[in-house]
Simulated scan of single mutants.
Amino acid sequence: MLYGCGTESSEKPIEQTESTSTETNKGDEFKSQNPKSSYANVVKIDSHQEHPTVRARIDTDHGELYVVSKGKEAIGHVTTPSVLGSEGDFFYQGNYSVISKHHEEIKEIKELQELVFIQPSDQPISFEKISFEAMDVFLLTPEYTSSRGYNSYAFGVDKESGEAFAIPFKKADNVQETINYEKTSTPDNESEKLVVTTRNTEGQGDTLTTTYSFNKNSKQFVAE
Rank of each mutant, 00 (worst) to 15 (best):
S47N: 12
K183T: 15
Y3F: 07
V222M: 03
D89M: 07
K36H: 05
E190M: 06
F30Q: 02
D28N: 05
Q176V: 08
I75E: 15
Y181R: 09
E108S: 11
D122N: 04
N215W: 06
D61Q: 05
P187D: 12
V157A: 06
S10L: 08
Q123P: 00
R57P: 00
D89W: 14
F138L: 07
D59Y: 00
H48C: 09
T211Y: 12
T20C: 06
S147R: 13
S37A: 06
N200G: 07
N180E: 15
S9K: 05
E190R: 14
V42D: 06
T7R: 10
E111I: 01
S86N: 05
E23I: 11
G85F: 02
T207P: 09
G94P: 05
N189H: 15
N217Y: 04
I106V: 11
L140Y: 05
T210R: 10
K159G: 09
S69C: 10
E11S: 13
P13H: 12
T207C: 13
K107R: 15
H48K: 14
G4N: 14
E104H: 10
D28Y: 03
E50D: 15
I109S: 07
D122C: 00
V43F: 04
V196W: 11
S100I: 05
G88F: 11
N180L: 13
A223F: 01
T198G: 04
E114S: 02
P187V: 11
Q123Y: 01
F127E: 01
G88M: 12
I106W: 05
G27V: 10
T60P: 08
V157C: 09
I179L: 14
Y3Q: 07
K44F: 04
V78M: 12
L65W: 07
L208P: 08
E15M: 00
E182I: 14
T211K: 10
R57H: 04
S37C: 03
V78L: 06
T209G: 10
G94N: 01
Y150K: 15
P142K: 07
V43Y: 03
Q16T: 08
K101M: 14
T210L: 14
S152R: 11
P52H: 05
T184A: 12
S126A: 02
T60G: 02
P81L: 06
P187N: 10
Y66H: 13
S126Q: 04
N151K: 15
F138W: 11
L112M: 08
V222E: 01
F138Q: 06
K72P: 15
E224Y: 00
I130V: 09
E143T: 13
T184Y: 09
I106R: 11
T24H: 14
E8C: 13
S185N: 13
S131A: 14
S185F: 07
G205P: 14
L84F: 09
D158K: 14
K170Q: 04
V157D: 09
Q176H: 03
S218E: 11
I125T: 02
A223K: 02
D173K: 05
A134V: 06
K216D: 12
P13N: 07
I75T: 15
R55I: 03
N41A: 01
D28P: 02
E108D: 10
S37L: 01
G63V: 01
V137I: 13
D122M: 00
T209P: 13
K107N: 15
T210H: 10
H102M: 10
N41E: 12
I99S: 08
S191T: 12
V157L: 12
P35V: 03
M1I: 06
S218N: 05
P187R: 08
V67Y: 10
G205Y: 12
E50Q: 12
D136H: 09
E104T: 08
